[in-house]
């Protein structure tokens, strides 16, 4: 077997910098996707037709086309249309954030629908306005139920982030490819990158479990 990890040792700092590069845009994308997804979910459950249609069309488009296509459209088509030379970093945040919002909105919508109708009725009967009712009463209960699905979405986003290597963004994946090209050996760098992705997802999973356990405490206070 032709394996030699010693050759990539000088490149390890270069590879490790990819962790920061990946985490930097993934974390902002997750946040953007979550906020936008929550707003879209609220649009989906309102009685205002126009907002409902907008949210449904949005979701349909972003779920119905490949993520890599959305990424490429933002990176290559936006400059063509507007003349604005969009940086890789911003492209990555936008593509992943907008795409994730579509999936998150469906998860949150389902979560809100699953909260007992009586909760909303009790809040309305007390005269509590829509915003605080959603923020303090309905969403906390919805999020608790959908946390596993949300963590799953964040994990998918973290892993799929590797496709930003196709627009030349220097993330973990791209760096592994560059190292491979430099030393004419691909397995070692790719293997290392794979281990790092796995560790990142593992940590994310553990954080999810921790948050879930804390939220469940209100069910088992006795």
């Amino acid at each position: 077997m032709n394996l030699d990890f010693s050759q990539i040792v000088p490149f390890i700092p270069f590879l490790l910098k990819g962790i920061g590069a990946t985490l930097q845009f993934v974390s902002i994308s997750i946040l953007l996707g979550f906020i936008l997804g929550t707003l879209l979910a609220l649009c989906k459950i309102t009685n205002i037709r126009l907002l409902k249609i907008f949210a449904n069309v949005y979701t349909s488009i972003f779920r119905g086309t490949p993520l890599i296509l959305q990424l490429w459209i933002i990176y290559f088509a936006v400059p063509q249309l507007t003349g604005y030379d969009i940086p890789e970093y911003l492209t990555a945040i936008l593509a992943f954030g907008l795409n994730s919002a579509a999936y998150v909105s469906e998860i949150i919508r389902a979560g809100i629908m699953a909260v007992d109708r009586g909760q909303m009725e009790a809040a309305m009967a007390l005269g509590i306005p829509y915003r605080p009712m959603m923020l303090n009463i309905i969403l906390p209960q919805a999020i608790k139920n959908i946390l596993p699905a949300l963590v799953n979405e964040f994990i998918t986003l973290t892993k799929e982030s590797a496709i930003v290597s196709t627009i030349g963004y220097l993330d973990l994946m791209r760096r592994a490819q560059i190292i491979g090209a430099q030393i004419y050996r691909n397995f070692e760098a790719l293997f290392l990158a794979g281990v790092i992705y796995w560790v990142m997802v593992y940590i994310l999973t553990k954080i999810g479990e921790l948050v879930e356990r804390r939220l469940r405490q209100s069910d088992t206070h006795s």
């Binding site: 007992d116 009586g118 909760q119 009725e121 009790a122 309305m124 009967a125 007390l126 005269g127 306005p129 009463i137 906390p140 209960q141 608790k144 209100s218 069910d219």
Partner: peptide, 20 residues
Amino acid sequence: IMEVRKNIGMVFQQFNLFPH
């Protein structure tokens, strides 16, 4: 409606307390 509801308390069959 919100103003009206402030003055009317309601008690439900299923209690509908906020569980969290």
